[in-house]
């Protein structure tokens, strides 16, 4: 499958029908999810603020998923030097960072409403903030390195090292938190959730995933098109060889 879609020609054909399909289904899922979010009953423990969860949790999931996507695409780009892989990795960075920021903002709003504080030094929240910094660093590499091929390799190294470190960062902050933070707060996790909360959560998660996929496909399509348009101009110099 990898090699089949690594071919830009095939990719363009695939993207031409897949992108609108993804966009439309993302829109439908999002509308359905928002309707479900408001139609669902308030939670016994959290009250009306549980609705923030439907925005917050899928955002955090897709932020992680996007970064994992970047790491996988970076590995492919680094090992097999597929130009499509590094376009893919790069296209995931902006929506991934936006999702990370969204999950942080909604998380702290929810935290204020529920725990009375905007910020908790717990492993999850802190490592998501650090993930945002990793995203910014990754995007900055693409920004500052002008040579495209070189930028792709350097960004890939950055992404892979960051990806290996995220679980370690999470573990460290958890450890640190268990020593320094006496009151641990519980947030509703998906597994034990009642069906009336689970349904909107899952719809929203699906909507975010589709949205992410649509954004990436659109971005990749644009980049591939730009690459094709930028036909290399003919070399200006010619060489002649003379005996002396």
């Amino acid at each position: 499958m990898l090699t089949r879609f690594a071919n830009p020609q095939r990719f363009v054909r695939l993207a031409s029908w897949l992108t609108p399909v993804l966009g439309i289904s993302a829109g439908i899922a999002l509308a359905l999810g928002i309707w479900q979010s408001f139609a669902s009953p308030p939670d016994a423990e959290h009250g009306e603020t549980v609705r923030i969860m439907y925005v917050h949790v899928p955002a955090a999931w897709s932020a992680m998923a996007a970064y994992t996507g970047i790491a996988v695409a970076s590995l492919i780009s680094f090992v097999w030097r597929h130009p499509l892989a590094d376009i893919g990795a790069r296209s995931l960075a902006l929506p991934g960072a936006a999702m990370t920021a969204l999950s942080l903002i909604t998380g702290s709003l929810w935290g204020k409403a529920d725990w009375g504080t905007y910020w908790q030094w717990d492993g999850r929240m802190t490592s998501v903030l650090i993930l945002l910094f990793i995203y910014i660093g990754y995007m900055a590499i693409w920004q500052v390195v002008s040579d495209r091929k070189r930028a792709a390799r350097l960004a890939a190294i950055t992404a892979m090292i960051g990806w290996i470190n995220i679980p370690i960062i999470k573990f460290s902050v958890d450890w640190w938190n268990s020593l320094h933070q006496s009151a641990t707060v519980s947030s509703p996790g998906a597994p034990g959730l009642a069906p009336e909360f689970l349904a909107p959560l899952m719809t929203m998660a699906l909507a975010y995933t589709l949205l992410l996929a649509w954004f990436v496909m659109r971005n990749m399509q644009a980049e591939v098109a730009a690459m094709r348009r930028a036909r290399r101009p003919a070399p200006v110099a010619t060489a002649t060889i003379e005996a002396m």
């Binding site: 990793i134 900055a140 590499i141 960051g162 960062i169 573990f171």
Partner: peptide, 8 residues
């Protein structure tokens, strides 16, 4: 780039 890696 290095600060997040140094946190642990």
């Amino acid at each position: 780039l290095s600060a997040p890696l140094l946190i642990p």
